[in-house]
Design a protein around this nucleic acid. Sequence first.
DNA 1: TTTT
DNA 2: TTTT
Lengths: 162, 162, 162, 162
Amino acid sequence: MANDTVITIVGNLVADPELRWTQSGMAVANFTLASTPRTFDRQANEWKDGEALFLRCSIWRDAAENVAESLEKGARVIVQGRLKQRSYQDREGNQRTSIELDVEEVGPSLRYATARPQKVDRRQGGQRAPQQQGYGQGQPQQGQHAGWTDQQGGYDDTPPPF
Amino acid sequence: MANDTVITIVGNLVADPELRWTQSGMAVANFTLASTPRTFDRQANEWKDGEALFLRCSIWRDAAENVAESLEKGARVIVQGRLKQRSYQDREGNQRTSIELDVEEVGPSLRYATARPQKVDRRQGGQRAPQQQGYGQGQPQQGQHAGWTDQQGGYDDTPPPF
Amino acid sequence: MANDTVITIVGNLVADPELRWTQSGMAVANFTLASTPRTFDRQANEWKDGEALFLRCSIWRDAAENVAESLEKGARVIVQGRLKQRSYQDREGNQRTSIELDVEEVGPSLRYATARPQKVDRRQGGQRAPQQQGYGQGQPQQGQHAGWTDQQGGYDDTPPPF
Amino acid sequence: MANDTVITIVGNLVADPELRWTQSGMAVANFTLASTPRTFDRQANEWKDGEALFLRCSIWRDAAENVAESLEKGARVIVQGRLKQRSYQDREGNQRTSIELDVEEVGPSLRYATARPQKVDRRQGGQRAPQQQGYGQGQPQQGQHAGWTDQQGGYDDTPPPF
DNA sequence: TTTT
DNA sequence: TTTT
């Protein structure tokens, strides 16, 4: 019976995405992700970066255009898709195969401080709510803060998990 | 030996994220994801939505502030994190447990047409490159298009995988 | 658009699987997995076990019988399936929900030295190497079967997890 | 920051696993998984098999011996591990890379009727139910061992995948 | 309780 | 090059 080959990878774009169109007018974007596993070195007793995986990705239609507009070299993204084998001929004429990712979902990671895109307007047309500046003020909104730590309860002050 | 419980889910926020701070000043954002499995109904011979999973999520520090600023009700996101069991007392005083997701990575999905946030500037400070217009024009850029479909090669016109 | 909620977890069975049959004769096995995340404690500078996640799992048809025959308390397994929300009434009559895993694939982990099951016979017919000890008879155990379908029936009256 | 590149794949072994030892005596098993995505053909209105992905896998130590004893050509398995890029020289002397899977967990799928291995003995010491047919002797097979470590040695000279 |  |  058939299998499901969907996987998820987190990594950074090694270059800007390349946007193209098929002859029938369908958009396709290609980009390469570098994904660097974190490994704990028992000898050195510290975290080190492992060897990076470079994974070629492709994405289609609207998503391709979104990717080309929203992502650039260095962006950290989460991608979900299917591993696919592609055949090609090298310069010597030998048949070769490579493994790539057919992306179904991709999103820019919101993990770090610089990653604060504007809110997206989901209404028809795709305009976005006006914003004067508003990035990264990064300070507690008084009301919320007070309201929350005033109570006894809710989340305790335990350290976060990572 | 210990296990790794990292999972990835795609879904939509059922409400705006709630941003709070611990007493020590650490930001935490909470939100609930609705993830609706797509199932193929053999009787009706068509795709249908399955029953949604509602998964409570929490995220910490900078990422919490990014989430609060960037995401809102309805947003489609990819989240990666660890399933966690939380204990609490219900109104009758019974000990209960719930399963939640401790989010490590989250990104707004770029899958659909309206999802086109501006490019994020990765330089220190987080300002973003000026842009005159540039959103969603969604048309082939002449040079690229021509250069690509002119050749015989590159990607062929096969239908996309999904 | 709908989402795909398939996840994979590695863990150990906290008890032997429970095998039952629906009134229509379909086998279902239930078991609970304990999955213990490994975390690196920066203070102590060592690996520690995090808090275990206990995840209720169900699996159907042939796979249910395989699970009941092959797995027992303590077994380390890899499971792949969909997170599902289940509604039930607690003793006070309140509507509650729990999150469980609808298992699509499960296999006993071959990671450690003791995990060496016999090779499986893949030939048509499915006979397998003779076994004295009475596993694998593949028939409803009278007590369980009766006890369960005697009730008003169906699968939906199972007790909530934990 | 580093990423986590753990993925899970379900597939079938295209051949028996190959078991070898490094010069330092560490076991390593290699096998190739075929993972065939199931796709729904809207034209034909039916499920079809997509194009298979062939993924080269390696696994180490005890797990390698377990794999060699328990799995054979055709076996359906669940594997979890990290995608890794490997460099090698092709016959023309060109530097090439391939993507493989460093397996951390693997288990034979219990999904189908024929997949019913005996229960595994989990007691200290790792003895297992008596077996007449000679699986699981757990010792290096002379020929393989010799043939492999006789060469100049180490694991790194293995031929590239496919 | 969300959703192209 | 596998496969309920």
